[in-house]
Design a protein around this nucleic acid. Sequence first.
RNA 1: GGAGAGAUGGCAGAGCGGUUGAAUGCACCGGUCUUGAAAACCGGCGUACCGCGAGGUACCGGGGGUUCGAAUCCCUCUCUCUCCGCCA
Length: 424
Amino acid sequence: MLTLQQINTDKEAVIESLKIRNRDYSKEINLIIETDNLRKQTQAEQDKALAEANNLAQQIGKLFKEGKGDEAKSAKEKAGQLKETSKKLTSQLNEIKEKLNTLLSEVPNIPNKLVPAGKTDQDNFEINSGGEKPKLHDKAVPHWDLAKKYDIIDFDLGTKITGAGFPVYKGKGAKLQRALINFFLKEAEISGYTEIMPPLMINEASGFGTGQLPDKEGQMYKMEVDNLYMIPTAEVPVTNIYRDVILTEDDFPIKMTAYSSCFRREAGSYGKDVRGLNRLHQFDKIEIVQIQHPDKSYETLDIMVKHVESLIKKLELPYRTVRLCGGDLGFTAALTYDFEVYSAAQEKWLEVSSISNFETFQANRLKLRYKSKNDKKTKLAHTLNGSALALPRIVAALLENNQTPEGIKIPKALIPYTGFDIIN
RNA sequence: GGAGAGAUGGCAGAGCGGUUGAAUGCACCGGUCUUGAAAACCGGCGUACCGCGAGGUACCGGGGGUUCGAAUCCCUCUCUCUCCGCCA
């Protein structure tokens, strides 16, 4: 969430920047400032009352020691009154603080200047593309048919065991998953990321830290009995490693990668979008996370984009890179690049990666800070993350694009990991 | 699951109702000394909020209570450790 400091220093600029999200937040921002002023005022009153009470209590202590019981008694009465007023003020203050927090957590991140105007994903700005759309043979079919033909992914079986959106990978299908996981992890390792194997369930504090709670509670599976959530992405447990941490500048950059299964309820999705591997409740993803000095986070974002691009290139998939427009930009992000690969049989672009700079938005919730060398103050760090990469749609594109009458060819870069070069 | 012990500053560890934001040691930073370093000595050393400032307030795992006054007493939650049970 935004800091009060950000809002108080330049309220107009905040409101103006948020307009690119196609909404006017001036009402919210003004209410926040108003509430904050009330907070300050109430706190000043409370501090005064408490100071007086503290003083009095000390005096009473002294009087008792000196054996002046009578004087102490009258002082006690006065203290009792003070206590009541301070109690009232305290509960008022708590209420105000809670309101302020709620208000603050409802304002999205300030978009970077590079974010283009627009409402939907149609308005995203294409900044790059590569690879070539393959020419498929006459009898080419979408990946869900290929999955059945070669018996590598069984959607019905998943439905039987669990429900829709939980596919079962079999034989070479399972091996392909494992190969992709190892390939992505290896590439991340080469780029200097430390591998993390995180818990797949998280508590409330972690969900709040990275911004899934309270905004996206409905997207997560919840274990009511233990009050835990299944992770929607490894971003959550991995970034939360640094919750409540104060770093030194020398610690930057912190680079972590993690493979995990991800669980999303995807309530409200339907139709073509969810066919086959296009949208699942459980899927596998390799995530890269960086924690960086504010001066260097955008440089880092570009490096992360390059990393993802190199993965897709090695897999020889046609892709395009887009910068998300204001309407498509996530609540917590300041700038996001998406990668889409072309899935030739369904003739669709599929989003396979999303790389974002959150600036201090997550760090503020996480209380993730660093000690500045210059002025020795603690300041909020910048957090970034990206998918590198999510498996299902990559698999969809690989299957569809590489299908031949003889079988599905495996891209060269992946063969050392699969141990086979064709699925037939 | 049962029984017990515990949670204090970066770490270790005192304090167990009154001037304790908290002894002491280590670590860390600045200085003296030294050719340099070590040692020794001197000084500094938590976070947040309010205030132009002096200063004030809050924080000893979280929340609540008792009291004029709580790190200290009570309740509750969470977590850690030890023993027993169960178990991949």
